[in-house]
Amino acid sequence: MSLIEVDAVSKAFWIPSVHRETVREHLLGVFEPRRFERLQVLDGVSFDVRRGEGLGIMGRNGSGKSTLLKIVSGVYLPDRGRVSTRAAITPVLELGVGWNPELDAVDNVLLIGSVMGLTLKEIRASLDEILVFAELERFANLKLKHYSSGMSERLGYAVAFKAVREVLVLDEIFAVGDAGFKARCERRYRELRSLGHTAIIVSHDPRIIATFCERALLLDGGRVMVEGTARTVADQYVAMLTQASREVSGATSPS
């Protein structure tokens, strides 16, 4: 049975010729109409995610991967199409889960844990485990604004790995931390999958998609170009990058 069904989803952003973000700018510019350029980020994307599978999403920068994850996670609304979810989704988008820099790690874990649907009792019971996973026990009472980006990213993954209930959505998984942390993430990921959890992973790394997913999509220009086994899609992605690289070299080399 499909846990997530994405049906002909399209999303565009309107990019103005001049950014106006204040009442003052809007009033002063009332006689200078702006032009808007339509940026089609997703165009009729359809796929489904079955219970217990790992789905990889690949594509070059600007292909619509992150927007697609935000739509699947319920952060963005699609302009057209439909997303049906029959399971709780735990997202880690753009290497983060949304920290308040003015709070320490403990309060942030309580906040994000409860946003992800854990009860306060569950979060308090898991707090030590989360901090140990992220190797941040010594910095539990340090405000997040004093954390390095790597530290806050590690904490984000530690919370998400603990909070996941059914579907884990990961943008650029295993791109944070040192070799030891990456190995722990990989172990935890395999453990979750063996327990029957579903995962959607976005990555530029063909090895990650081929290793951790069974199925994958290749996005280009907001459309699904290839859908198939993770190995096939990873190979297609490498071929696409090689082709693009040749075209750039050809265009820039002196004739």
């Binding site: 399971a87 709780a88 003015e102 709070l103 309580l110 409860s114 649907g117 306060l120 209930r165």
Partner: peptide
């Protein structure tokens, strides 16, 4: 809809309390 999906659609009291508490602390 699974239990998890149903739970995700509810507003947990813990979330409201944590938002109030963290707002106060910040």
């Amino acid at each position: 809809m699974t239990d998890g999906a149903l739970r995700a659609r509810l507003i947990p009291a813990g979330l409201v309390w944590t938002l109030v508490r963290t707002d106060f602390k910040a």
